[in-house]
Design a protein around this nucleic acid. Structure first.
Length: 694
RNA sequence: GCCGAAGUGGCGGAACUGGUAGACGCGCCUGAUUCAAAAUCAGGUUCCCCGUGAGGGGAGUGGGGGUUCGACUCCCCCCUUCGGCACCA
């Protein structure tokens, strides 16, 4: 397709000389308390036989193979991206207007900041506390039950009946899709225990409920059936009381409720808070809780920590050693890279392939020197690509991750291009790791890319995503062999705006081919007049040439390739109508340069045919005379009462009075305003004139 | 449910901060060239009505309102399609 890369800067993230530094970054995060290991219920793809990060599960399915993801309790490595949630959100302000709004929006939603209140319910018999997070602290007097997520670790320290154990087990077995399906009835089981309400001292029954997420907030929720639809449904099913504590500002609620009243209102039956509005109540309750030492204001994010362990062979080994005496010990920096062994059997078996390679897994503890084992997992490959922009600045440096002076010159990335599908995955990781490296004084910038452009996908003729494995792709090689790279390029670019998806059609090939043929013919048939000299005299054609230079230059800057090509087509159409003079000669010379980004092979060929030296890509881009861009005579539409009635040919610099006079004298206009009274005349310079009658 | 984007000829799509809607291309129609065809070249092509014709009139950017001399563009309501999130308390 004629794509130019600087191959001298090629990097391969799977080579030890690259992943050495990926491991180095892992150790850096570990040192900074941003890499940690914890047992958790994690996303497990049964087909890929590996765990997945939150961002890599969509609709409960694996991003790679679309299998339904299940939960597994495993001890895994996480990057504490949530510690950067606030900054990742805040710094989006530096990207506004430079990144697509859509991407900024997606990130904002994904990070999902939510301001609320932490409320602690005590469990005195067991000397435990049940903290909950709520955005509606004003409804705290309406709590009639407490709901704990089935996988919550606090349950492990509580005496649970057989029934509760069975319920928990059942909840964990069903898939995420099933469990979070809206249609499914909420279920739960009473634990037989009660918590103490912080304000009323009432005994509140504790349930384990599968509609509570363990990974959000505290994993425990206060149930307020009157003011939360989910709690309402649950209370109905289990016969729990529904206690109204908020009423509309200007009215009453008719009880019994048939659904939860979720709007803001005024607090009722709420002790000393009664009479406050919801807004007032939320902050009053928060203040009071803080004073009591039972909670206070809190911020929660939807963003979860980034699970980076993978049970795959491909990826950088996690540079950690498990020692029976010293625990988890980082591999000393000077021992990096921890190399992947040559493994015969890559097939996923539910545990890391590295685990069954004794010469890899068995090692010595760097601290005590005794027998120890390496971490068998590899890192998510998204870790590799979250810092590659830094390595590209200095790709062959064997002594350090990169030369900071060199990186300073290159970064941030002026223009980053990628698909929208990376909005909440790579593009968040990428920003996160860059910030961590910035904080550590390593990256010269805290935002990796100043401008982002997200290109749309080209769909096949059925409007489907192209997939070579499914055989629904239009293979590039045969296409290029048949029509040539230039035609293929112009065809795709002319399809439509590149940020939107486009449907591939054989038809676009026809237009592109015809256009490039016309370019070739007009240039080669007029080789004798081609000149690089700007003609001394002015002409309409010269202005058209200048206009096209301006248009194409600006369009390229804004990724409007389709309209840039359209402008070139117009120019070529003009050339075919022109007489063969030095202006055309200059136009053809200019055309060869303007067409080069779109049809590089043709441009290079024509450049030599017109006697150019070296490569057209080493010449300067055409310049235009701003004084000779617009036509000396322009057409001005004349409207009567907003309806187009005539067109006037006037000089470009016509005065307002003159144009007014000419319009009123025009026979067709006189016909239309005959018998009417002219109320106003609106003249928009160089645009139009509108005569308003009574 | 929440957040976001988009609806323009037969088709892909143009239209800058409100100012000639349909650039450019595909397709189609007519003509030239040709023994014929392909290719190429020239012209036409939003829809409806009147006119043999030059031409004239009307409607029109998903639907309905509004602001304005003037709306594809701005505001309100609705419909449809697509994308993201989705029991986030």
């Amino acid at each position: 397709m004629g794509i130019s890369y600087d191959w001298t800067r090629e990097i391969l993230t799977c080579e030890p000389k690259y992943y050495k530094w990926t491991q180095w970054i892992f150790l850096l995060l570990y040192k900074r308390g941003l890499a940690y290991r914890k047992p958790a219920y994690v996303n497990w793809c049964p087909n890929c036989q590996t765990v997945l990060a939150n961002e890599q599960v969509s609709d409960g399915r694996c991003w790679r193979c679309s299998s339904v993801v299940v939960k597994r309790k495993l001890t895994q490595w996480f990057f504490k991206i949530t510690a950067y949630a606030e900054r990742l959100l805040d710094d989006l302000k530096y990207l506004e207007g430079k990144w697509p709004d859509e991407v900024i929006n997606l990130q904002r939603n994904w990070i999902g900041k939510s301001e609320g209140v932490r409320i602690v319910f005590k469990l005195p018999e067991f000397d435990k506390q049940l903290p909950v997070f709520t955005t509606r602290a004003d409804t705290v007097f309406g709590v009639t039950f407490i709901a704990i997520a089935p996988e919550h670790e606090i349950l492990e320290g509580l005496p649970l009946s057989e029934e509760v154990h069975q319920y928990i087990e059942r909840s964990l077995r069903i898939s995420e899709i099933e469990r979070t399906s809206r249609e499914r009835e909420k279920t739960g089981v009473f634990t037989g225990m009660y918590a103490v309400h912080p304000f009323t001292g009432e005994r509140i029954p504790i349930y384990v409920c599968d509609y509570v997420l363990a990974t959000y907030g505290t994993g425990i929720v206060m149930g307020v059936p009157a003011h939360d639809q989910r709690d309402f449904e649950f209370a109905k099913k289990y016969g729990l009381p529904i206690k109204v504590v908020i009423k509309p500002v200007d009215g009453e609620l008719s009880e019994p409720l048939d659904k939860a009243y979720e709007e803001y209102g005024v607090m009722v039956q709420s002790g000393k808070f009664t009479g406050l509005t919801s807004e007032e109540g939320i902050s009053a309750v928060a203040d009071e809780l803080k004073a009591m030492g039972l909670g206070g204001r809190e911020v929660q994010f939807h963003l979860r920590d980034w699970l980076v362990s993978r049970q795959r062979y491909w990826g950088a080994p996690i540079p950690m050693i498990h020692c029976p005496r010293c625990g988890v010990v980082p591999v000393p920096e000077e021992e990096l890279p921890v190399r992947l062994p040559e493994v015969v059997d890559y097939a996923p078996k539910g545990k890391s392939p590295l685990e069954s390679v004794p010469e890899f897994i068995n090692t010595k503890c760097p601290r005590c020197g005794g027998d120890a084992k390496r971490d068998p997992d590899t890192m998510d490959t998204f870790v590799d690509s979250s810092w590659y922009q830094l390595r590209y600045t200095d790709p062959h440096n064997d002594n350090e991750i990169f030369d900071p002076n060199v990186a300073k010159r290159w970064l941030p990335i002026d223009q980053y291009i990628g698909g929208i599908e990376h909005a909440t995955g790579h593009l968040i990781y990428f920003r996160f790791i860059t910030k961590v490296l910035y904080d550590a004084g390593i990256s010269p910038v805290s935002e990796p890319a100043l401008r982002l452009f997200t290109q749309g996908m080209i769909l096949n003729e059925d409007g489907k995503v192209m997939s070579s494995s499914k055989g629904t792709a239009v293979p590039v090689r045969p296409l290029v062999q048949r029509v040539g790279a230039d035609v293929a390029r112009v065809g795709v670019l002319f399809l439509g705006p590149p940020e939107k998806e486009g449907i591939w059609s054989e038809r676009v090939v026809e237009g592109a081919r015809r256009f490039l043929d016309r370019v070739y013919r007009i240039v080669t048939e007029n080789l004798d007049i081609v000149t690089k000299n700007v003609p001394a005299n002015d002409s309409i054609l010269l202005r058209k040439i200048n206009y096209t230079i301006k248009k194409v230059t600006e369009d390229i800057e804004h990724f409007h390739y389709n309209t840039a090509i359209a402008a070139l087509m117009e120019l070529v159409n003009e050339f075919y109508k022109s007489k063969k003079d030095e202006t055309l000669g200059y136009g053809l010379y200019t055309l060869v340069k303007l067409i080069a980004p779109f049809a590089p092979y043709l441009a290079e060929e024509l450049w030599h045919r017109i006697g150019g030296e070296g490569s057209v890509f080493h010449t300067s881009w055409p310049q235009y005379d701003p004084a000779k861009v617009y036509l000396p005579e322009i057409e001005i539409p004349v409207q009567v009462d907003g309806k187009l009635r005539a067109r006037l040919q006037v000089p470009f610099d016509v005065t307002e009075d003159d144009i007014r006079k000419r319009a009123l004298e025009h026979p067709k206009i006189r016909q239309h305003i005959m018998g009417k009274q002219v109320k106003r005349i609106i003249v928009v310079p160089k645009k139009l004139i509108n005569i308003v009658t009574k």
